[in-house]
């Protein structure tokens, strides 16, 4: 594994992430496998500080829904994408609610920055704070 690429400024929460099956109330870090139901964590979001979500294959996409569900439920801690991930997926990941990535191959921060700045606006609301283009259009007409 390469280094973790983080978009948060708070200190890294380094506790090992337990698998969901071993997780007990009060634990601060947990790991969701791709097929785990993120909604099971909703009662624990107040105590959790980091949730890792596994991407065992490039084609894997369930983690995007898991992250969004956790953000919709109000989770503000770190959500870390772990596995087969490339810099070109960063925009999808951050918009779905991830704010850290632990990829198998390292992410070049310069390329990452360029990638994240690429699209000036977005068409749909998601887990980040970006306003969709329809809202911007609405405002410019108001």
């Amino acid at each position: 594994m390469a280094e973790v690429y983080r978009l948060r400024s708070d200190p890294e929460h380094t506790a090992p992430a337990l698998p969901l099956a071993e997780y007990q109330s009060g634990g601060t870090a947990v790991r969701l496998e791709a097929g785990d139901d993120a909604r099971l964590l909703v009662p624990h979001l107040g105590t959790l500080r980091r949730i890792d979500i596994a991407f065992p294959k490039f084609r894997e996409g369930r983690g995007y829904s898991s992250a969004r569900i956790l953000r919709e439920a109000g989770f503000t801690g770190e959500i870390r994408a772990v596995g087969v991930l490339y810099v070109d997926q960063l925009m999808f990941l951050t918009r779905a609610g991830f704010d850290a990535v632990l990829p198998e191959t390292p992410i070049d921060p310069a390329v990452a920055e360029r990638t994240l700045a690429r699209f000036p606006n977005v068409y749909m609301k998601a887990a980040d704070s970006l306003q969709p283009i329809w809202a911007l259009r609405e405002q410019s007409n108001a």
Binding site: G61, Y64, M91, A96, F119, V122, M124
Partner: peptide, 8 residues
Amino acid sequence: TLHPEFSF
């Protein structure tokens, strides 16, 4: 277009 949740 570029939907973050539904591109994979």
